[in-house]
C-alpha cells in the first residue's frame, strides 16, 4: 500500500514540477502575435493554393489583418462569403468580387483531334511537353496527362475518360489558378463564373495559320475573324491567328457562337436553343 502511495505522490510531484517549468518556458519564448490572425486563418479553407497571390493561407491571414482595407483581397476558394466573415471580424469592409473558375480552353477530344501516335513515359504533361508535340498533331492543345489534376488541392479537376480532356467541377473550383500556372501549354484560364455558370469563350489555343490548325483539330480556331466582326460589343480580338473573348466586355449574346465556322467558341450552361444547336462540339462533356 505504501508503495502505491509513494509512487502516486512522486509522479504527481514530477508532473507538477514539469508543468511549472513548461509554463515559464512557454511564457519566456512566447511570440507576440495578433490573435486575430489565428481566427482569420481558421476561417480560410486551408488549401494553401496560393490563388490569392500570397504564400499560403497563413500569409493571407496576416496580410488581411495588417491591411487597411480589404480592397483587392480575395480568397478565391472561400469566395465572397469567407471574405465577409473576415471583414466582420476585422471590422473592415469586404469588397465583392465575382466568383471565377478555371476554364479549359481546349476542346480537342479524341473525336475532334485524332491521336496520331501514342506516348509512353512518365505521366506528366511537363515531361511530354518538353519531349514533343504530343499524341495529336496540335502543338497547343491539351496533353491529357493530368498535371492540373494533381496540382488541384480541391479535387475540382478530373480527366474525362472518353474525351481525355480535363473537366472542371465548378462547385468545387475556387478559381485559385494553380492549374493555370501548372499547365505547360497554358490552356487553362481563370474566367468569371457568370450567372448560372454561363460562359462564352474560345475553346482553342492554336496559334497556327487556319489550314494547319484545322488539319490537326476539327474544332480549332482558325483565326478567320468572323466572330470579331459579328460581336456587337467589340469583346473579341484576334491575334496570332487566334480569337480571344474579353470576359469584361462580353454580354453573352452568343452571336459569335453561331458564326464560328469550326465551332471553336464554347457556350456553357445556356438553355438549349429553340430551333437547333448550331455548335457541333460536345459542350456537354465540358461541364
Amino acid at each position: 500500500m505504501n508503495i502505491i502511495i509513494t509512487s502516486i505522490i512522486t509522479l504527481a510531484a514530477i508532473g507538477l514540477i514539469a508543468a511549472v517549468i513548461l509554463y515559464f518556458i512557454a511564457q519566456h519564448f512566447k511570440v507576440e502575435e495578433d490573435p486575430r490572425i489565428e481566427i482569420v486563418e481558421g476561417l480560410l479553407p486551408g488549401a494553401n493554393c496560393g490563388g490569392c497571390g500570397k504564400a499560403g493561407c497563413r500569409n493571407f491571414a496576416e496580410s488581411c489583418v495588417k491591411a487597411d482595407t480589404l480592397d483587392g483581397m480575395l480568397c478565391p476558394v472561400g469566395g465572397n462569403e469567407t471574405m465577409k466573415k473576415i471583414a466582420s471580424i476585422l471590422g473592415k469592409e469586404a469588397v465583392e468580387a465575382a466568383p471565377r473558375v478555371a476554364t479549359i480552353r481546349c476542346n480537342g477530344s479524341c473525336q475532334n483531334r485524332p491521336r496520331t501516335n501514342s506516348y509512353e513515359g512518365a505521366s506528366s504533361c511537363a515531361i511530354t511537353h518538353n519531349l514533343y508535340i504530343g499524341e495529336s498533331g496540335c502543338a497547343y492543345g491539351c496533353l491529357g496527362c493530368g498535371d492540373c489534376v494533381s496540382v488541384c488541392h480541391l479535387g475540382a479537376i478530373s480527366i474525362d475518360s472518353t474525351t481525355k480532356l480535363p473537366v472542371v467541377d465548378t462547385d468545387k473550383c475556387g478559381g485559385c489558378g494553380a492549374c493555370a500556372r501548372t499547365c505547360p501549354r497554358g490552356i487553362i484560364e481563370v474566367r468569371p463564373l457568370g450567372i448560372k455558370g454561363r460562359r462564352v469563350y474560345v475553346g482553342c489555343m492554336n496559334k497556327e495559320k487556319g489550314g494547319i490548325a484545322r488539319k490537326s483539330c476539327n474544332v480549332a480556331c482558325i483565326g478567320c475573324g468572323k466572330c470579331a466582326k459579328e460581336c456587337p460589343f467589340d469583346a473579341i480580338t484576334i491575334s496570332n491567328n487566334l480569337a480571344y473573348i474579353d470576359s469584361n466586355l462580353c454580354k453573352m449574346c452568343r452571336k459569335c457562337v453561331d458564326v464560328c465556322p469550326t465551332g471553336a467558341i464554347q457556350a456553357l450552361n445556356f438553355p438549349p436553343k429553340k430551333k437547333s444547336e448550331t455548335t457541333t462540339t460536345d459542350t456537354s462533356t465540358q461541364q
Binding site: G121, S124, I127
Partner: peptide, 12 residues
C-alpha cells in the same frame, strides 16, 4: 520506373 524522365525535367 521512369527515373530519367523525371530527372531530365527536374534538371531543366
Amino acid at each position: 520506373r521512369p527515373l530519367l524522365d523525371y530527372i531530365r525535367l527536374g534538371k531543366g
